[in-house]
Nucleic acid binder design. Structure first.
Lengths: 223, 223
DNA sequence: AAAATAATATGAGATATCTCATATTTTGAG
DNA sequence: CTCAAAATATGAGATATCTCATATTATTTT
């Protein structure tokens, strides 16, 4: 982890101004942190000291269960918060947050800003929207995971993550995210290839039948 | 649905004052609604006109999937909000909310209060806490549902809902809540009886071995 | 470059969970 | 009180998904 100082920090604060998110100045004690790919921004079970706001990059929220299974609960993208749960709740089991690409965040020390943040309607309004989205998203994922087999959820995931018609996510990550075993994921991917929806190219998969995948993914959505 | 008027309304407003939740007076346009058991407070897919605050009773959040499966996403208890998603988000698929007992709510018309509410730090702070809890809870349920078989989740549910050592939830409701088929739920309940954890009494189940159930439920929690 | 580690790959048997069919009992509406 | 609907109950076969074992191929570290 690198903490930006001097010129580098100044430029960053200027480029990604977040003044509009608060009704008071937060510049004074803000820090700018850069995390390398795979670095842990927050260790599971350890309370952070900062409220983070992601300005560049992408991270993953992980939780480890007692039976050793790991769940990738969700991704965090630019313009989203990290550590807001700990800001709001004194009792909270902290999830692990891992950078999945180089990730740059603003870090607001709790001890400087906690009180002010919790009284700032502008900040709270945005946070409320963010959290309502998070709650809604998790509720959707939850109910979908119970109502539909992997086939449907995977089709949806492929369509969402494919880049120019090519799906190239790491199997291991996807297993944690969709909550299925490695073996089963590979099995369903193979089926997709046999049915002609995908075509394997080295370790990537080329989408061949958008229509079929869209149909599978479509049943997840409530119109 | 009954709307309280006159004396009945006044008494209710007095008994369950919610003035402390807002920094401005909300009494003027507030309504008090009472819903009978099984009545729909909000119809799935229909935007409500009110922000509700439950003061008595218990309700259920349902969503219907395209394949006909129904998920009971969560329960709502006294001192919780309903309709907050619609208050915050212009685009939102409204879930169905059904009273599971007689339920009394305060109903704040969006058109009167929306603007004020979204600028009220006191209200927003509490709502933020509520939503963070909701998001956390859904994330936990989600990851647990993928990481553990019904056996564990059911043990947890039984311990949470048992009343004086007796479990007596409706199977149908539990299926929707835990996201499993009726057949399978009955199967696991039978196993619990065979193992001596529970003992069937008519249509209820008496808990016989707390320890065993606690052990099964315990692995869900991250310490 | 060698060694260690992570990711991919595949087979085979086990288990959790689902679907469908059908019967009985309980509950709510008229 | 009666009938229809809802809830409970159970069997049997199908399928989704898991576990474990083992190989091969990349990637990272030394």
């Amino acid at each position: 982890m690198e903490i930006y100082k001097g010129e580098k920090k100044r430029i960053c604060l200027e480029k990604y101004s977040i003044a509009h998110l608060f009704s008071f100045p937060v510049e004074e004690f803000i820090e700018v942190h850069e995390y390398r790919r795979d670095e842990w921004i927050i260790q599971e079970g350890m309370r952070p000291d900062f409220l983070f706001y992601v300005i560049e990059g992408k991270a993953k929220i992980y939780v480890t269960h007692q039976n050793g299974k790991v769940s990738l609960i969700n991704f965090i993208n630019a313009n989203e918060y990290i550590g807001e749960m700990e800001l709001l709740n004194d009792v909270y089991y902290t999830k692990g947050i891992q950078a999945s690409t180089k990730t740059v965040c603003f870090a607001l020390p709790f001890h400087c800003y906690r009180t002010q943040l919790l009284e700032d309607a502008k900040f709270l309004r945005e946070l409320t929207r963010f959290l309502s989205g998070k709650a809604t998203f998790m509720a959707a994922k939850y109910s979908q995971s119970l109502a539909f087999p992997l086939e449907n959820r995977l089709a949806d995931f492929i369509l969402q993550t494919a880049d120019e018609g090519v799906y190239k996510e790491k199997h291991v990550t996807v297993c944690d995210y969709l909550g299925v075993s490695y073996r089963h994921l590979l099995h369903v991917l193979t089926q997709f290839c046999e049915k002609g929806y995908l075509q394997k190219e080295g370790r990537n998969y080329q989408i061949k039948q958008y229509g079929s995948l869209k149909e599978l993914a479509g049943v997840l959505k409530n119109k």
